[in-house]
Simulated assay, not measured.
Amino acid sequence: MLHCENRIKQYYTSSAADLLKEVMDYYGITQSDLAKRIGVSQKNISDILNRKRYLTEILALRIEKVMGIPSKLLLSLDSNYKLQLAEQESKLNKEKGDSPLFLQRYSWVTV
């Protein structure tokens, strides 16, 4: 039964890189082959697969055309992954103590 106090467990959040690696492995596509097909350098593909950079909207559209993976899915995966990283970083910063530069909460505000 649904109840507002029930929490959904957080599972592993994957990025577009995870999905691309899986599809590339399945079809036997190399980084250089994918790079040629979508018009970027092999280093660019390597950086994306190693999460050193993330997909742009243009690259997501090119990948959709070549691999059939919806660009909205790829961008959504990356967006969720980056958000999770930011949340983790925010928790670490909170553990170190709030910076005096940030706005202070009013006592009447609840989260």
Rank of each mutant, 00 (worst) to 15 (best):
Ile45Ser: 06
Val66His: 03
Ile69Arg: 04
Leu74Val: 06
Leu83Lys: 09
Thr30Ser: 14
Ile45Gly: 01
Gln31Pro: 05
Pro70Asp: 12
Arg37Phe: 03
Lys36Ser: 12
Tyr12Phe: 00
Pro70Ile: 08
Asn80Ile: 03
Ala35Pro: 09
Glu64Arg: 13
Leu20Arg: 06
Glu57Gln: 15
Ser14Val: 07
Ile58Leu: 04
Ala16Glu: 10
Leu19Ala: 07
Thr30Met: 10
Thr56Tyr: 02
Leu34Phe: 12
Asp25Tyr: 04
Arg62Leu: 06
Gln10Lys: 03
Glu57Pro: 08
Ala35Ile: 11
Thr30Lys: 10
Asn44Thr: 11
Leu34Ala: 15
Tyr26Ser: 13
Glu64Asp: 12
Lys21Met: 09
Lys72Asp: 06
Val40Asn: 06
Asn44Gly: 07
Ile29Glu: 08
Asp25Lys: 15
Ile58Gly: 02
Ile63Gly: 05
Leu74Pro: 02
Lys21Leu: 12
Arg51Ser: 08
Thr30Asp: 07
Ile69Ala: 01
Asp25Arg: 14
Leu61His: 11
Gln42Leu: 01
Ala35Arg: 07
Ile45Leu: 01
Ala17Val: 05
Gln31Val: 02
Pro70Phe: 00
Asn80Phe: 03
Gly28Lys: 03
Ser15Asn: 13
Ile45His: 02
Met24Ser: 14
Ala17Glu: 07
Ile58Glu: 09
Gln42Met: 05
Pro70Tyr: 02
Ser46Gln: 05
Leu34Thr: 14
Tyr11Phe: 00
Ile69Trp: 02
Arg37Gly: 06
Arg37Glu: 14
Val40Thr: 08
Tyr54Met: 11
Arg37Ser: 13
Gln10Ser: 01
Asp33Val: 15
Asp78Gln: 05
Asn80Ala: 01
Met24Pro: 09
Lys82Leu: 12
Ile29Asp: 13
Val40Trp: 01
Leu19His: 13
Leu75Gln: 04
Ile58Ala: 07
Leu49Gly: 05
Leu75Glu: 04
Leu61Gln: 10
Tyr26Asp: 15
Asp25Thr: 05
Met24Tyr: 06
Ser32Lys: 14
Val23Ile: 15
Asp33Tyr: 06
Thr56Glu: 07
Ile69Gln: 00
Ile58Asn: 14
Leu55His: 08
Arg62Ser: 14
Leu19Phe: 11
Tyr81Lys: 01
Val66Met: 01
Thr30Asn: 06
Lys36Arg: 14
Lys21Ser: 14
Ser14Asn: 02
Ile29Gln: 07
Leu61Glu: 10
Ile45Val: 09
Arg62Asp: 13
Tyr54Ala: 08
Ile69Thr: 04
Thr13Pro: 00
Tyr26Thr: 15
Asn50Leu: 07
Ala60Ser: 12
Ser14Gly: 02
